[in-house]
Nucleic acid binder design. Structure first.
Lengths: 223, 223
DNA sequence: AACAAGCGTTGATATAGATCAATCACTGTT
DNA sequence: AACAGTGATTGATCTATATCAACGCTTGTT
């Protein structure tokens, strides 16, 4: 990603390759002192806030960085939990900054990553802005599908590694509604779902339901 | 903010002080080429996405940076419109990066700003996660109040510079619901509202309605 | 001052989705 | 293999909120 071998070597020296975490284990807890960012190598991580009732904030896939929202804080605001066995690398942030201060290309990458995270959240806000549950779930599935395919996985056939409860919390609806909508989508032939396994059968229809602009026709306008 | 006078001078040379924008004018449009970030000096800016139906993504106050979600893109994804006469400074990003590459303290500040933006969005996700409209509006008002007070303005008495429509879009509910909830809160004595003017009378009660943890009792836990 | 246009409020109605309750199906453990 | 415990599904009911419709109030313009 635009770094020389030497740069990468320097970076490698500070990265800690932790042992793989098993389902249910935490990358960090809310309230813990912020020291590092975490790169997801494989697996899936959910972030959530436990103030009041458990509110899921996001699902993170390989390549994503978690802990970014604590950079300007002393402590983590949310907790990060592994949804399936995951390999996570720890990146001590202070040491990272020291190294990056001499490597403009690394800084540039970091800006891009942070920005990607912001635009990612923007997409989620868009998804959440939908007033009805059907749209939200459809948009969620399409978004997930897109993210998986960007990582070289199938866009049409995948396993959900989060529970129905997590999905419902994330989308701001009741679990029962998630369940019923899955069934409805299934019965309408939009997708085939059984347990955690989802197979999208009709993208166009799902996009129509989601009220989103199909990815194929996404904004390309130039000034 | 930890910069020497010399640093600030350098930064000043690249900042463009645009003429003030009037209500309704745009800072940038979706699809325009990304070149600069924008710092809000005074006023208020809303960001929105016009794909499908107008979806409000955020309200930005003095000190906030807008355009961050485009750093890793060639074009802006959303549009930014001024809600009241606002002074906006333009910060050409490429030139900024060149200058920052020699100024670690400036880099550090930038990371903090980007992170602040991410945690800001996290708060919004929390707010949006609420299933019922009452909680969302209450949380919205508290959040806004808190942001205003951080800027030295009154936390209890302020003017909304966005329309009811903007609020409804932002919170994912119908305009009518916003209107009715304002009335209900007013009648219940939680606040006094007339048109754009809001006066919060009972913070504790509003916090209870919002289902959020009162700011006073916010997480301080240490590992 | 009068007017238009947009914005906000209010009321009536319909319905999507929350909630409550019961059952069923996995998953993992002894 | 049996069991417990959790997670998912389904059904019935009720309520919050979307939707439809009408009206009133501001604000800005001629």
């Amino acid at each position: 990603m635009g770094l020389t071998n030497g740069d990468v070597e320097k970076l490698e020296t500070i990265i800690k390759h932790a042992r793989p975490l098993r389902r249910g284990e935490h990358v960090f807890h809310a309230g813990e002192r912020f020291q590092s960012l975490y790169v997801i190598k494989t697996g899936c991580v959910k972030t959530y806030d436990a103030q009041g009732k458990h509110q899921v904030l996001g699902f993170h896939l390989p390549g994503d960085l978690v802990g970014l929202d604590a950079i300007d804080k002393t402590c983590h605001l949310c907790s990060a939990q592994v949804l399936e066995s995951s390999a996570i690398c720890e990146l001590p942030f202070q040491r990272f900054e020291e190294i990056a201060s001499h490597l403009p290309s690394l800084q540039h990458q970091m800006y891009r990553l942070l920005s990607k995270e912001i635009s990612q959240e923007t997409e989620i806000l868009l998804l959440r802005g939908k007033t009805n549950a059907e749209e939200r779930l459809a948009a969620f599935l399409l978004h997930l599908s897109q993210r998986l395919s960007k990582r070289g996985l199938s866009a049409t056939d995948f396993y959900l590694n989060m529970s129905r409860n997590d999905i419902s919390s994330y989308l701001g609806m009741a679990v029962e509604t998630v369940s019923r909508l899955f069934r409805r989508f299934n019965d309408q032939g939009l997708l085939r779902v059984s347990h955690k396994h989802v197979e999208i059968l009709d993208f166009a229809a799902l996009e129509r339901v989601s009220g989103m602009v199909p990815i194929s026709a996404q904004r390309q306008r130039m000034p």
